[in-house]
Design a protein around this nucleic acid. Structure first.
Length: 430
RNA sequence: GGAAGGGUGCCAGAGUGGACGAAUGGAACGGUCUCGAAAACCGUCAGGGGUGCAAGCCUCUCGGGGGUUCAAAUCCCCCCCCUUCCGCCA
């Protein structure tokens, strides 16, 4: 959620920044929010004044009852009762306006950081770094799609995955399955110096998925179990963010750094039929997430740290990559500023998004009620949350199949993964 | 899934209709004392919202939501969570 007080105090700036998202309807939502907020404050002032009178009268009633003056007490009670009725009608309106305001605020995206490159869509995302590790040309044996290579090697069996679960599910086997797990293990080990490993629940409550911003707006993208009010996590970001939901963290304890490997579940409701071959898009995939809660002033440095860490993992794998900044028109709902790491896959001839590094400012913290208390100061403020995919398995797996395919059709495993491969350094056909 | 007992501030814990946003103890923080420390003593010590330049004032919050009442931590209803026992179970 955006800060309604910021919007109230500087609506022009918020409108201007929000307009950069290139979604005209957002300005209308901002105005709606301002309208509800204004009405809300009117009612609140009125209600508080009535309550004050009721509280005062009640005290007097108590005193009169004790002194035995029941008659006078009854008079005041009647007065208080009528005030109570008036308050009740205001309470009803409060509920209504609160719900409306909350609904608008939950649907409004985050305000972009002032430095985010302004653009209308993904075609205007600037390249920040790279391309790195990119050869001038690729030999023909690397221009083979990973699904062909992997299926021929017997390490990808999507046909049976579809039999088991339906379209857009994948299944790795043998060295392919080991490779998927090796990637996770490697990504975790790369960040274990500073990040606490978490094994979070994969099924989470509505509140948890609302905190990160997936709900209510993107309910169709997530798998749900309505019987139990549970949702399959689309990313470990959701449970990691809610670890400290409703808590007040000490400034001295920040930044907090967590990492988690999890399966991720996505209905891909809006993208059926796109990238359905191979490993590029599926309903279930594995990912290692790195996550941080930071102070507002510490957040930019953390964004840099996360980016550096993600880059290191990809660079060490020897894959061609580049880092792009996400422009205002392409940024996700909760994002304040974000970068993507893309890996080049010569077989598909495409840059694949393998990581998104995001700073959410206090947007998620406000939704999840994650606050911090400054040392020696009264009161609290919302913390900042950030996260990044340290490694999304399927696309990196696919990129390895394509970049390290050898002339004989085998695939060489990047050396940093060898310790996790039970001795397999090259995957040969069976 | 069944039964019983619980949920109060940073922690422990009192409070069963009115003077309670909440006793008391501990922790923490500031101070006095001390060469320094300990002890002792004094003080501070919840969060949200509204309003105000500010000091402040008002309001809400005792797991969450509703209800009864002039008045609810306290009474009633629903839900959530925790503990123990039983059942089931990787």
């Amino acid at each position: 959620m955006i800060d309604i007080r910021y919007l109230r105090s500087d609506p022009e700036t918020v409108r201007e920044l929000m307009a950069r998202r290139n979604k005209p309807e957002l300005i209308g939502l901002l105005d709606e929010a301002l309208g509800f907020d204004g009405r809300m404050r009117e009612i609140t002032a009125e209600r508080d004044a009535i309550r004050q009178q009721v509280n005062e009268l009640s005290k007097q009633v108590g005193a009169l009852r004790r002194s035995g003056d029941d008659k006078a007490a009854e008079g005041l009670q009647a007065e208080s009762r009528s005030l109570g009725e008036k308050e009740q009608s205001l309470a009803a309106e409060t509920d209504e306006v609160t719900a409306q305001l909350k609904d608008v605020l939950l649907r409004l995206p985050n305000i972009p950081h002032a430095d985010v490159v302004v653009g209308s869509d993904d075609s205007q995302n600037p390249i920040i770094t790279g391309p790195n590790n990119l050869p001038a040309t690729f030999p023909a044996h690397q221009r083979v799609a990973h699904w062909d290579t992997a299926t021929a090697l017997g390490i990808l069996d999507n046909e049976r995955a579809v039999k088991i679960s339906g379209a857009m599910f994948t299944m790795q086997r043998g060295a392919g399955a080991t490779l998927a797990r090796a990637l996770c293990q490697y990504a975790l080990d790369c960040n274990a110096d500073a990040f606490e490993e978490i094994r979070p629940p994969s099924l989470v409550s509505t509140a948890t998925l609302t905190a990160t911003g997936q709900l209510p707006k993107f309910a169709d993208d997530a798998y749900s179990m309505s019987k139990d009010d549970l949702w399959c996590i689309p990313t470990a970001e959701a449970p990691l963010t809610s670890i400290h939901a409703g808590e007040v963290l000490a400034e001295a304890d920040l930044p907090i750094r967590y990492m988690a490997h999890s399966s991720c579940y996505r209905r891909e409701a809006g993208s059926a039929g796109r990238d359905t071959r191979g490993m590029l898009r599926s309903h279930e995939f594995d990912k290692v997430e790195i996550f941080s809660i930071a102070t507002p002033e510490g957040a930019p440095a953390m964004l840099t740290e996360l980016t550096t860490r993600v880059e290191r993992v990809i660079a060490n794998l020897g894959l061609p990559y580049r880092i792009i900044e996400i422009c205002t028109g392409d940024m996700g709902q909760s994002h304040h500023r974000s970068f993507d790491v893309e890996v080049y896959a010569p077989g598909c001839d495409a840059w694949l998004e393998v990581s998104s590094i995001s700073w959410f400012s206090d947007y998620q913290a406000r939704r999840g009620d994650i606050r911090m208390k400054r040392t020696g100061q009264k009161g609290t403020e919302f913390a900042h949350t950030l996260n990044a995919s340290a490694l999304a398995v399927p696309r990196v797996w696919a990129a390895i199949m394509e970049n390290f395919r050898q002339e004989d059709g085998s695939v060489a495993i990047p050396s940093v993964l060898h310790p996790y491969m039970r001795g397999t350094t090259v995957i040969h056909p069976k």
